[in-house]
Design a protein around this nucleic acid. Sequence first.
DNA 1: AGCACGCCGACT
DNA 2: GTCGGCGTGCTC
Length: 752
Amino acid sequence: MVKSAGHPSARAARSPSVARVSLLIPTHALPSLSYGIPERLGPAVRPGSVVAAPLSGRPRLGVVVGTEDGQSAREYVLSVADDLSLPSRLVEVCRRVCEKAAVPLPVVLRAALPPGLETGRYRVLKPDRAWPWRTGEVVARAVLERALGPDALRAAAAEGRIELAPAPPRPPLVEWAVVRAAANPDLRRAPRQRELFELLKERGGASPTASLLAETGANRGALRELVRRGAIRVVRRQQAAPTEATEGDRAVARDVQPFLRLARRAVKSGGTFLWRTPAREEPDAVAAVVWATLEGGEQALVLAPEIGVVESVVGRLRRALPAGYTVAAFHSGLGRGRTAVYEAARGGAVDVVVGTRTAALLPLARPGSVCVVDEPSEGHRAEPGYEGLPVHVRDIALERGRAEGASVFCLSPYPSLRISAPEVRRRERIRQLPVRRSDAWPGVRIVDMRGSGAVFSSTLIEACRRHRDEGKRVGMVANRLGYATAVSCTRCGAVKRCPNCDLPLALGGRTGPLVCVRCGHKETNTGRCDECGSDRVVPTGLAVEHLREYLAEHLGEPVGLVTAASRDLADAPAVVGTAHCILEDDWDAVILPDVDAFLLASAVGAVERSYRLLHGAAEAARELLLVQTRVPEHYALRAGVRGDYEAFAAVELPRLRALGYPPFAHLAALTFEGSGSAVRRTVESRLRPALEPGVEMSAVVPVGRAGKSFLWRVLLRSNGRPAVARAAALAARLAAGTHGLKARVEVDPEEV
DNA sequence: AGCACGCCGACT
DNA sequence: GTCGGCGTGCTC
């Protein structure tokens, strides 16, 4: 559905109003450009319209980000793709996200458009006689370019023979069975076919064949036979949005009731809220917010950090919400099926969308509320340089609240300090709902490991054995994958380091080799200390495999393993795994044998993560939380095992302020890929002189390599987020214009 | 002087 | 992203 300006004749003589267009070219280097609005397109061109406009003589797809009156422009908007246009308030959200996060505006806008949108396809309007394509056919730019050559392609576009035809990917086709009119087959001696036919009639005479076959257990032969008899037709239809109808299950809804009054009040008053509830109550709090939103006739968007959580929240909402509403999931795992959900959300046909970060900018016809589930999770932000925006979902949600008037809820027992700090809450007008504490708390044992070289204390081993003997389950958290992060001498304490990079060498397998994670240096593990000559060099840094082996030895029976990559013997009485995989489950006892690896990590943000780990571990443990440490008085440890978030914040916030870290100052992490000389030249002679006052920049530090090229890290810091974002955007622009240099930019990363 | 190549900035 | 201008440096 593209409205075209009939070519140059349509250019109005009097000065037309002007559209600012952000062309969908993913670069920092191209600003929004001004184009005239031809008279006949006038009303269709508004902020949010998706339009075609020429750049360097060829049409490009872009989004109108603003309109002005009076000025004239040399080039004109060519056409409008009405069926793709975004709500203008969402464009406002995209603009603010772009400014705050130093992500090019076209990249942010692209994230708000349908996934997989083809921007480089043309519809053939008036084919030349020599062309192999017919009128109305849609052809990819690459195909046209190969066949015609770039000049003829441009000429064809200028002559109006072809027209840019953006199209979201079509939903996949699904096979349907449809009863033929007046069909009355004799199925007395064909029970399978009869069953199929009856079920199909029960469903109103049309149904996807997959579910018919699954439900009756019939095979395709029975279906084919019905077709042969002329009883049914098999047709292919576009898959409808995979929405689910709510059920209003009373028993499940009862769990939601305690949250409902609060949620109704908050949704009604509007604004941004922190809601601290125990992790296991989060789905019910979300259900209450969604419920209250639907009562107001608006749509709810729920954002979860990963696909598994999305699916479980969808299931919970489907059962808990009153009957008569629709819920849909939106995440990358749905492939092309996502398009239909996108359309349904944009058109207001679905009431609730639950999605991963890819859904953060999903257009909604009636935006009512946005819930960020497990707010501090790092899954809410894409790694810079990979697909998706390197922006935390909470920041997008906050902007949606402001621009679209949606109520925003950030849920977690332990929200990130950058959103819960009193200064931030005041500045951003974030209100805190009454805190709900876990009603059960396990017993806590903190085992002081000072003066012990052992991996496991006797307390730990006894606790494991006791739980095992009582038929209870123990979950143990490891901090690393693999076997060991380093080897050190038990006599003098020296750590074996890489001769090139000075980094501790990691142990690849039980007996070696020793490998450098940065430069790839490899050596055999001799077990001998280079410093004191002892032969007592042993693995340290308790990685998953090692812990598992060790624990199995002590218990005299196999121990389970759960990581993102593998699940083995997950039902064993004792299971070792990564923090993420262990803590999403419930255990009788949770054991953190090496919490110091988290507490003492050098990254700022690591302490906060440790607090969450401890608090989360306590919530996941029914009876016992056991922690081994050499810093038993550490504030994050003491507060974490009690779930005392306020006590932790009271110490950590002043520390962050003193260090000049978010939320008290803002950072941008720049990662450059290229030769050291190119990086230093760009950073020192071009970026540094251009920095605004108040923006500090660190030195260039090597941080490893990506394949053949080297990676370098530079940190920018400023009191104001806009200033640091501008500097980061400048860095990205400089790198984009420098041959052999790539930059990835992240403003206020979760951890530095 | 004439031309190839690569860098840089403009493009609306 | 893509193009053209222009400066550098090489060849005829």
